[in-house]
Computed example of a mutant assay.
Amino acid sequence: MSASQKRPLSPADESSDEAEFSSSAPILDRSSTFVAHFHPLTSSTSTSTSSGQATTKQASLTSTVKACQSHPDFASADHRMVAWRRPSAQRTLGLGPATTSVAPKPVYAVGSDDDGEKYAGKRLERVLIDLDVEGVIVVARWYGGILLGPVRFTHIEMVARDAIRKWKSRQEGQAKRQKTASRETPSTGPSPEVVDEAQRAKLAKQLAERDNSIVILRGLLAEKTAKAQQESGEKSSQTSPTSTNPNASPPKKVDYSGMPLQRLRQLDKARDATIAFILKQIDLAEEEEHKRQVNTKTDTSEGEVDKS
């Protein structure tokens, strides 16, 4: 069965349990497909006591993770990488209420399973930590028969972030709808100013993360470009602006904390476009590298035939 036949027809389609998870848009790269699901840890089961009273019991983490990996959308995938993050029973040591009013920071338990894609699980753990969410993230890959190299980890992280952001956006949309429905009722919730400030803080943190991803991707592109020049015998008299020069000063960090919300939203869309462009350039560079390898093997074979 070909890779295209194995892929789900529409990974992002809504399903009966859509309220329980969020699905990313697929990333296709040289016949390989990557799709992510994010499942918040809200699954529970109802049981009855001897007195007939119904109680709700939280499903075990192991069963939840297995259920997420076994989702029908991923039944034909070659890899189903997974990571999870949940509050731990442990607590940080605090000074106590007598000396401070600040509550101790929560401690989280994280874990992962590479499912044959080495190091992918740890990268997914980092995504959960960076976006500060509790739940299970599963990334499925349908292998197309062509090795992608390090860029596959970028695809894995991108679809994971996309699924989590879509879930967050849906949560925000539900909160807005509830707020609209209760306008006539006196509300004790946060004011619009407080909500906007929270969104500003979230976008500022998110943009800083994307700036870091762009630096990493540009460095990867510079390495591939330099390798291509070296293999073709070209010598550049200039240093590429994206090259990883150990003596070069690090890129200046932008302070997003003081920017208005509308400007942060515009920058967020711009960063998305930049990342997509760099990924496309990396794909082109890897295609050229593959062509050079094929040509080198062909030249070597012809040379051996001439000698004989």
Rank of each mutant, 00 (worst) to 15 (best):
L264T: 08
G219K: 10
S191N: 03
A75M: 04
I214M: 08
P40C: 03
T100E: 06
S32Q: 05
W84S: 01
K66A: 15
Y119F: 12
S112L: 03
E134G: 06
A181V: 12
D29I: 03
D73Q: 10
G144I: 02
K224H: 10
S301R: 13
T185G: 04
R141Y: 01
T274C: 11
G303E: 13
T300H: 08
D29A: 05
D255K: 03
G144E: 09
A83V: 03
K66W: 04
C68P: 05
R177G: 03
L41A: 13
A160I: 04
I282F: 01
T296P: 03
H71N: 11
T244H: 14
A109I: 05
K166W: 07
M1I: 12
P11I: 01
T100G: 01
S237P: 02
T100M: 11
E287V: 13
A36G: 07
A75T: 06
L203N: 00
E288I: 00
V107K: 05
S32N: 00
D255L: 04
F21K: 13
T42M: 12
L203G: 00
H155F: 09
N245A: 09
R200I: 09
A248C: 05
E117N: 01
Q238N: 10
T92M: 14
A98W: 07
V195C: 10
K252S: 10
E302L: 15
T42A: 15
E134L: 11
T45E: 15
L217R: 10
R183M: 14
P150A: 07
V102I: 09
P40Q: 06
K252G: 02
L220R: 04
G189V: 01
A198N: 12
V110M: 12
K253L: 10
A77K: 01
K166N: 08
V215Q: 13
E304L: 11
W84C: 02
E231N: 05
K122G: 07
V254T: 15
R200V: 00
P192M: 02
R177V: 14
A204T: 02
D132E: 14
V139K: 07
A25F: 01
P251N: 00
L207S: 00
L221C: 04
D162T: 11
E287S: 10
D255C: 00
T49N: 13
E18Y: 08
E223A: 07
V110C: 12
F74Y: 09
A89T: 14
L207N: 02
G258F: 00
K176S: 09
D130P: 01
D272N: 07
L95E: 05
P11N: 06
V138G: 02
D73C: 12
Q178A: 09
A120Y: 04
A228F: 09
I282A: 06
